[in-house]
Simulated assay, not measured.
Amino acid sequence: MMYSGRFAPSPTGPLHFGSLITAVASYCDAKAHHGKWLVRIEDTDIPRIYPGSEAHILACLDAFEFESDAPIIFQKDRLDIYENVIQELKNKNLVYACQCTRKMLGSNAIYAGTCRDLKLAFQQQAIRVKVSDQDICFDDRLQGRHCANLMQDLGDFVLKRRDGIINYQLAVVVDDYLQGITHVVRGADLLDNTERQIWLGSLLNYPQLDYMHLPLAMNDQGQKLSKQNLAHAIDPKQAPKLLQQAIQALGQETVDLDRPSVMLAQAVKQWDISRIPTGTELSGTYL
């Protein structure tokens, strides 16, 4: 099967250096395998979209001379597709309506299945998918064997919120399948999402993907670089310098400063995942 990878940022804030590391790694891994590399904007959580962040993402892709091998898709344009998949799961009795609010659930991290057998009407309720009491495991190319029991660790999880927002877990699984993605390269902060996505994909008879979760860039407070932690937006005008830094952060051989497309081509030729630092965090601090 031909390798098909993707970079899927969310416009809840501008791209930061951690995002750039993911973009570089996903691109280099795809191209080193003579595969495709696609871009998807994950914007289903419409209320959290930060003004101008989508434009910044697209400007950075241009400035760093990343080229998607297919037209960029935007999840907010695909809501009907996700609704159809939810209907498919309804038809199979794999989901149910849930009236529990955050206040009702309190600090409970594991959903107890309170509404599972109530057979509530779906209108204006959250929709949860049923999980089973079993181990789900996968072999991550960097992080090794990873397992979770969703019933014991999480419980039935939400696919659609009460306010109608499609959950990330559903949208990512559906789009990876419809776009023909075979390999996922992303940050280790999403490692614990993987079993949920494997479970959901299995319910839909989707093929299981190959995963590689990258160590995270950290700030001087020991926090991962993120929009929530106010990570600095990357400057498209500094593309060559920042690209060189991202490649070095991934432990790869240094590339010469040049046009970004030339630097990326050199990085692809030198790509070696055995050089990527082990663990879930990069050493050093980043802005």
Score class of each variant (00 low, 15 high):
M1N: 04
F7K: 03
P11R: 13
P11V: 08
P14N: 10
I21N: 00
A25K: 02
Y27G: 02
A30V: 02
K31H: 09
A32V: 00
G35Y: 03
D45I: 08
P47A: 09
R48V: 10
R48S: 06
Y50I: 05
S53C: 03
A55E: 15
I57C: 03
A59Y: 02
C60Q: 05
A63R: 07
I73M: 10
F74V: 10
F74I: 12
Q75S: 09
R78A: 10
E83Y: 07
E88V: 02
C98Y: 03
C98G: 06
Q99P: 01
T114C: 07
D117I: 10
K119L: 11
Q123A: 15
R128H: 02
V129Y: 04
V129F: 04
D133N: 15
Q143I: 04
Q152L: 15
G155C: 12
D156P: 08
V158F: 06
R161F: 14
Y168R: 00
Y168A: 01
L170V: 11
A171Q: 10
V173D: 06
V174Q: 06
Q179T: 12
G180E: 08
V184C: 10
N193I: 00
T194S: 08
E195Y: 00
R196M: 13
G201L: 04
S202E: 14
P207Y: 07
Q208L: 09
Y211F: 15
M212S: 12
L214I: 04
A217S: 11
L225M: 08
H232Q: 14
D235I: 01
K241M: 12
Q244M: 05
I247A: 07
A249V: 03
R259W: 07
R259N: 09
I276F: 01
I276C: 02
T280W: 12
T280E: 13
